[in-house]
Simulated assay, not measured.
Amino acid sequence: MRLLLIRHGQTTSNLSHSLDTAAPGPGLTGLGERQAAALPAALAAEDVGALYVSTLTRTQLTAAPLAAERGLTPVVRDGIRELAAGELEMRNDEEAIEAYLTTAFAWSAGDTELRMPGGESGAEALGRFDEVVEEAAVAASGTGTAALVSHGAAIRMWTAARAWNVDVTFAAEHPLSNTGVVVLEGEPGKEWRALSWTGVAIGGPGVEDAGADGAAAHVVTDPQPPN
């Protein structure tokens, strides 16, 4: 199957660099709304057969224009919400953000028993995301393409853990801009390969020929926190 992992549009918490992971969370800024409105055109070449969003408001608002344009009903699933910040919730200091990302990427590297301070473990975070990917694979069986509108840290962590050609170093050094898209192909429980990261083809056999197929990033000039 073809899997599109899409980060939500910009929020006020992005602007304040806050670890805002609790539901329902903030809506979109004016720029975030424009980013969401641009998604249908950015994904024009993608034959999306299933569209999933998290329980956080920002993903639902981001997916709305794409859903309307394609005639899809977004499926809301808690499994693709942002990695819960626990005791770090709403902090925006460098120490907290470093602790958050260090824990997330330790999960990608295999230390799945490690817990976010006051929060979930890697096994729990990966397990819930895997469940939604498996469900989406079934739902998109007609077209073979599913789109999941999720969150920056969750997408980077899961991709580094599951795609054979994306390692922790790459994911850590390549943040996702708002509405940035990671494109993968593979099957749940089997091998995943990342084809592109915010429109740029990444390593692996045949990737240079794969292209982004319309999956583009909407670049925001302000530095972005992980969620």
Results as ranks from 00 to 15, higher is better:
G206T: 05
I80R: 04
G142F: 03
V168S: 13
P40N: 07
R115E: 12
F170H: 07
G49M: 06
V220H: 06
P223M: 10
G144C: 08
L3K: 11
T11Q: 10
V133C: 04
R70K: 11
P175A: 06
F105C: 05
G203P: 06
I80C: 08
S150L: 10
R81Y: 04
E94W: 02
E69Y: 08
L28S: 08
E98P: 00
V166G: 03
L126I: 12
R34K: 14
R58H: 14
A146F: 07
V183K: 01
G49Y: 12
V138Y: 14
D111A: 13
A153V: 11
S177L: 04
S196V: 02
A23N: 14
L66Y: 02
A154F: 07
P74C: 11
R77E: 15
G142N: 15
A212E: 13
S18C: 12
S54Q: 11
V48G: 03
G30R: 15
A106E: 15
I202D: 03
D93C: 01
F105R: 07
T112V: 15
G180I: 06
R81E: 10
L56T: 08
A160H: 01
A153T: 13
A217L: 08
V183E: 03
V166I: 09
V75L: 09
G71L: 13
R115M: 14
I97Y: 08
T73L: 05
A50L: 07
N227Y: 06
G199P: 06
E134L: 09
A84E: 14
S13H: 11
Y52F: 13
D47I: 03
E94V: 03
A137M: 05
G110E: 12
T179S: 11
Q60W: 01
A123M: 13
D209G: 09
A163M: 06
D47V: 02
A172I: 03
D222Y: 09
P24W: 12
A104V: 13
T159C: 11
L176P: 02
A104G: 11
S16P: 00
G189T: 07
D47C: 04
S54F: 03
H8I: 04
T11E: 13
A106I: 10
L184V: 05
